[in-house]
Amino acid sequence: WGKEGHYATCKIAQSLLTEEATKAVKELLPESEGNLSAVCSWPDEIKWMNKWRWTSELHYVDTPDFRCNYDYDRDCHDSSGVKDRCVTGAIYNYTEQLVTGYNASNSVTNYNLTEALMFLSHYIGDVHQPLHVSFTTDEGGNTITVRWYKRKTNLHHVWDSDIIESAMKTFYDKDLNVMISAIEKNMTTTWSNDISSWANCTSAEEVCPDPWASESIKCSCNYAYRNATPGSTLGDEYFLSRLPVVEMRLAQGGVRLA
């Protein structure tokens, strides 16, 4: 996601944190007084820097072209083939760091738990952006040039930012917090019966990013790539039919992060 998507995911999660989790987040984020949504874009801000370049491939997972499915063992590796270097592998990794680091009374682990919290919060958001789990050759839609109404852009950017920004302008008084409130309202009405299934892992795992990634590749094939061929102009028909998908993915990311 772009700034708005990460802010929304983390703002939604923040409102669902337990007392203990709120306390822990406050301890780990002293500079932002525990305001998680203030730091959720940090991994995007640093991934260009030499010191952090190795993190840039952790924001997504590439799947084989036109195969509308995801498999950890097949897909979770970086462009050099190094295993576990993808967004789901990163979610497992930073969850593990926080579980072992935060609970360990003896501070044997020297993980930076503040960084682990910011990376985990960002990556749980990203795995819910459908095109962050999508085809290798078009780089998750980055090489698919389209028009968003009158403006030239690419399909990845449409899903990272353009749909959200158009929604804010069209429906939410240009105010992201108004959009977040509308999503949270949906969570208490339309999606109220789904929240617990979103939140729980069917496997016994502490965190379960694999089904989240499978949902995203399905959304990529059914919604993002569909009717968005290179050079096409995307307008109301595409925007109004895809906005509900974006809003649900932001809600699911927030519930699962919390």
């Binding site: 944190l17 989790a21 822990a24 072992t100 699962r256």
Partner: peptide
């Protein structure tokens, strides 16, 4: 769900 689980006191520390 993830952060609440991680920061539950005495959360199950995985092997």
């Amino acid at each position: 769900a993830t952060l609440n689980q991680i920061f539950t006191p005495y959360a199950s520390v995985s092997q």
